[in-house]
Design a protein around this nucleic acid. Structure first.
Lengths: 349, 349
DNA sequence: TTGTAGGCGTTATCAT
DNA sequence: ATGATAACGCCTACAA
């Protein structure tokens, strides 16, 4: 009878608790709790006994109870505009690698480039009591009011890539201004005089800074920057095609194109080639991101490489160090990662 | 004095609980609890009062306490080989869209194509008491023993894309065999007689089935399948280059290449072009996945499209329906999604 | 329809 | 170094 009862017990959902371990070893639950952690005042031998018993009885700690008690979740929330872009998924991979190592869970959600959804996701994360959040902003996000609840509760926020400088939070990005300046300077060095820019939503730092860097380089070189040399879009594949058509219709053609991302650049190039233009013969081309397609499109695309994986790792490391009390986020305002100009055939005449 | 005390209170971490709401309204906490849910036996008016008071007091429900009590986490675990691949991130995006809608959180981890890490992640998810898991297997995973704890506790498992058929769990994939058969048949229809296959790790269904479909099509057409016409690799960019070199060294050249993914196909093509071959002149080419690069590489790559986003949505829907008791996973063995042969320039002589 | 009361599994504060 | 005990916030029989 006993035996079958036991078997039933094993098979059922009876979770083993620290009390079961305590009973089994004839000690108190408090001691078991200590033994399971790295509590300073615990006898090494009893700790060993406890660990063995836990193993033997099939114990697994109950995070809910622990979280309820300690009021922290060991969970980090992540909000990104889209998961299915090469760069973002690389960043997430980097974040995951650190979080996993440090024993933090990741709750990931996408804003679909929409401020409303970003706010909704923020609330959800807030309610699930994440210990901190990492955010890359949606294209149309105007304010960061929806993150205020976090600040009020001292839940740290790290912005990455598409950032906004605020007190109390950290931003991780590259120097988009400088990178764009360098690309543009590279085109100027190649002798270009009319460089067209394919720009993104200037609401976001990444695109505003790239535009500014582009303009600054032109200005420094004494080149004019007429309005019709900047073509704004969402930088999608379709936008690239439209940009090409736009260029085709321009009376005074540019001699180079600098796109704020590689996708738009690639599709613009492809369309221009269809229209009979030669690249780099008629236009030099440069993109941004070092997306996989930049190495496949013909001619290969000159671009700015910046490391998504490390960016994710660094962002996660800062956040977790802050949570662990090792380093304070608010002591640093922003971290700039190194970028690199990758010169390829599209700018080699 | 009072005022400043209150302000301090507001600013501090004093969380509002259902007891606070109860006190505020002079009702019991139990009623508040009911009011916050869709409990059948609650007065509509009191429910409204409760909701308003909750709003006013800044209440947010404590998932830990609730989870502890109800023993379910409203959380789904996801394990994928890599996050930073176009296909996977698209699937994840699909999963997220459904989970978010249904009020489930997602905990995501990557196995880095390693069975050990896959097992470790599984344990972590198990310990964090996810309600269910969704898995796409690592390349070198041999057994699914590390998922047994889930089955023992009746925690549902859905495998997607890189699946393994097991009782008690559901698999979501496409018919890789048929898709590969169709691609190969397409090449045969174009007059190809020696079709080389770039294959992946046959440990995984996706690659084994693609290989089998390829062989079956050849066999049906009465074409030989010598061993040296299959080149196995991890299908990376580098592997594509190696494959090209391999082809270059073959005495009897193939007249077509069918790669189990687009990346490998693209880099193989690029390298072959470097070596002076013409595509599609010397070799017709076909890939698999409809990766963004397939539309950019020249010539554009014939490939198999299959929808990652819907795959994620379907997998998540099945899992959640099972959790909600709407539909039982174990009543279905597998779901096959529709694929599509996309014919592009690389197979147009 | 609402209230009472007990417990979910842990950890922190005492005390021993 | 260990034990007893009281929370953490919520849910749910059961009683009223």
């Amino acid at each position: 009878m006993f035996k079958s009862y036991n078997i039933v017990c094993m098979k059922q959902d009876k979770e083993v608790t620290i009390y079961d371990i305590a009973d089994y070893l004839n000690i108190s639950a408090a001691t078991v709790s200590r033994g399971l952690k790295d509590h300073p005042t615990i006898n090494k031998k009893t700790k060993k006994k406890i660990l063995e018993a836990a193993q033997k009885l099939g114990y697994r700690s109950n995070a809910f109870a622990s979280n309820l008690r300690t009021k922290q979740s060991k969970t980090i929330g992540v909000i990104v505009p889209r998961l299915n872009s090469y760069f973002m998924s690389t960043v997430i991979a980097g974040i995951e690698s650190i979080a996993n190592e440090e024993g933090y869970q990741l709750i990931i959600s996408q804003s679909q480039e929409d401020e409303q959804k970003e706010a909704a996701n923020a609330i959800t994360l807030f309610n699930s009591r994440v210990d901190g959040i990492m955010v890359s902003l949606a294209a149309n996000t105007k304010t960061t009011d929806h993150f205020k609840p976090f600040l009020e509760k001292n839940i740290p926020i790290v912005y990455f890539d598409r950032v906004v400088e605020t007190p109390d939070s950290l931003t991780i990005s590259i120097d988009n201004y400088k990178a764009a300046f360098e690309v543009t300077q590279h085109l100027i060095d190649k002798g270009c005089k009319r460089i067209l820019h394919l720009g993104g939503n200037v609401n976001r730092n990444v695109y505003a800074d790239r535009l500014a860097g582009y303009k600054a380089a032109l200005k420094q070189a004494g080149l004019p920057t007429p309005d019709n040399l900047v073509f704004f879009s969402n930088l999608s594949e379709d936008a690239g095609v439209e940009a090409a058509n736009y260029i085709n219709n321009l009376k005074q053609k540019p001699d180079a194109v600098f796109s704020a991302n590689d996708t738009c650049a690639a599709y613009c190039m492809i369309r221009l080639k269809q229209l009979g233009y030669k690249i780099p013969g008629n236009f030099l081309f440069a993109g941004f991101n070092n997306d996989p397609i930049s190495k496949v499109v013909e001619p290969n695309l000159t671009t700015i490489a910046y490391p998504g994986y490390p960016m994710g790792q660094i962002a996660a490391t800062h956040l977790i160090n802050h949570l662990k009390g090792i380093a304070d986020i608010s002591s640093t305002n922003s971290v700039l990662l190194r970028h690199e100009l990758i010169v390829r055939a599209s700018t080699q005449k």
